[in-house]
Design a protein around this nucleic acid. Structure first.
Lengths: 319, 319
DNA sequence: TCAAAAGTGTTATCCTTACACCCATGT
DNA sequence: ACATGGGTGTAAGGATAACACTTTTGA
């Protein structure tokens, strides 16, 4: 009723005050290959769609769109960020995007749709430090970032750019911090070292070095999701959303390593998990591991209730 | 143009896919009395307004509305949460609210508007543990929460409610966790111990115990802001946004204590701040402190660049 | 027998917490 | 003198990181 009155009285005003709201999802799973994102073929792009009247809530709207486009049902969902689309500033239409992070297991995939999963390191090759610092990071990204820094007009900016690059990428003996995924992407964007920044694939370094691009700003949203997940696994037991109901401790460790993009020390990881009482033995063992049979564990759902903030801190291992 | 065509061609569709987007701000400052929120008289309510075409971005829209309604310019801003307004589900109009946390100094207030600041403990009296556990929490809230738990139909729910209350409020020798502000409010809402939950002021406990109410769901948004801020001061140096350019270490400590709602151990706090190199001496001293003159410090803005994640962890002090 | 993974134990180090104590100023 | 806040030092306890080592399976 407010609305129809508004339309009549101030037509221009009523229309300008309305926007289109898009829901967009970073859906993550972990398989043998590594950490994966759910994408739709065209773009590639993240699954997304407009928030409609039929949706009971933002979350249910998101679930509906993802299931429709990929056949993938979603479990854990959390909001990432809401932004007014920079690319689409135009006088008549405004679009705001509400992005979400969703965690799921890949075998959940139903019949409909053909979900396509891609390792998220296809999009961010410099983020995977499980086998040491990637060559391409030091050999391609680093010189190009330094070149970009050197191109600045004044010395202060040059110095600032160098420092920012060093902090984000861990140059000059600074430690690598896996949580800075978004800052790193933004830096590469600013330096025009990713395709999206220029629109010209040739301006960026070799495709393998700068990673696969995505449509619009979807790669940036993916970076936001990765960063959020990497920091969250350290203080909330969210990894278990990505695991099968039962798992071995090494499988759990491999999953955390896949997400964090770095290796963890085995004894320390086990102690941490056990002493926090995050898991309990099922009594069974798994033989498919190639070595001595491993005890199977399951997540103790009770910790979610018992503790307000139970973490899966990941003990760092220096190389 | 797209839009008018849309209206003509698919009137229903075009309208259903458009929503009104509201921007809403939790603006925080710290003064002698304690931590304060900026409110507008009617309600009381948080400053808010629709996102319009004229706004260049969500943030600038927010700044515009807050400044218009209160005369308060904003400094630090961060997004809190976006939600589809539960209270206004109706067939024709959809409203989504994008909420923000803003930090500012109270003396920033310009001439226009008449900003009214209120201690946030007026709205959440049970959140202030600086002088020990509030009486009202143990004497009013606790029995009412236990009563609510006991009213559940089945034993499992009774047990669950009791446990949730105990975790959130630190009953039964559990530790008090100041970060759980939102969970506590939600629990009180669920138990109909806050006015908003019923619409009937008499259903809730005495006004002083359940705290002042706000319009619509604004108190819930405020709880979200407090929770975010309380957890953030532990790993990001955001307190300094609330301080004057120079300050004594005790002033800084009092500010953190005001936000956290609990006391901190002085020597430990100082060591933490100094060893993290968050501040530097100005060389001057302040005499207005009532005792020995205190050294004045200023925030070292350089830490924002140097370190990716510099914190102001607050060492806990048990009573 | 060897490779591969499971699983256990120990130590050095750092950070946190708690507590005790001295210093400088105004009344 | 004493109250008030400013400021420093230290020792105990716990968590973390690093490393060494034994056990159990399949090929």
């Amino acid at each position: 009723m407010d609305q129809t009155k508004g339309l009549r009285k101030h037509r221009a005003n009523a229309t300008t005050n309305k926007v289109k709201a898009d829901l967009i999802a970073v859906v993550v799973a972990v398989n043998e290959i590594g950490p994966c994102v759910l994408t739709i073929a065209k773009g590639p792009a993240l699954p997304s769609g407009p928030f409609e009247l039929a949706h009971r809530s933002l979350q249910s709207g998101l679930r509906a769109w993802v299931e429709l486009q990929t056949g993938q049902p979603l479990g854990y969902i959390e909001q990432l960020y809401t932004f007014a689309d920079r690319d689409r500033i135009d006088a008549n239409e405004r679009v705001i995007s509400i992005s979400y992070l969703a965690l799921t297991r890949q075998e959940d995939a139903g019949a409909s749709g053909q979900p396509s999963w891609a390792s998220w390191y296809d999009y961010f090759p410099w983020e995977d430090h499980r086998s040491g610092t990637p060559r391409m990071m030091l050999e391609e990204l680093r010189p190009r970032l330094l070149e970009w820094a050197g191109n600045a007009d004044d010395g202060a900016t040059r110095f600032d750019r160098q420092r920012r690059a060093a902090v984000a990428f861990g140059f000059d003996d600074r430690p690598w911090n896996e949580d800075l995924t978004l800052q790193r992407y933004e830096l590469l964007y600013e330096a025009a070292l990713v395709e999206e920044a220029t629109g010209d694939p040739n301006a960026a370094p070799t495709a393998s070095a700068s990673g696969k691009a995505m449509v619009a700003d979807h790669r940036r949203i993916l970076a936001t999701g990765i960063a959020r997940l990497r920091s969250k696994i350290k203080y909330r037991p969210v990894v278990f959303e990505l695991m099968r109901p039962t798992f071995t401790l090494l499988q759990l460790q491999r999953a955390v390593e896949a997400l964090a993009g770095r290796l963890i020390n085995k004894p320390n990881f086990r102690r941490l998990v056990e002493q926090q009482e995050l898991v309990e033995e099922t009594g069974e063992t798994s033989l498919d591991t190639g070595g001595r049979p491993a005890k199977l564990y399951r997540f103790r759902h009770a910790v979610l209730d018992e503790r307000a903030a139970a973490g899966t801190k990941l003990p760092v291992m220096r190389p």
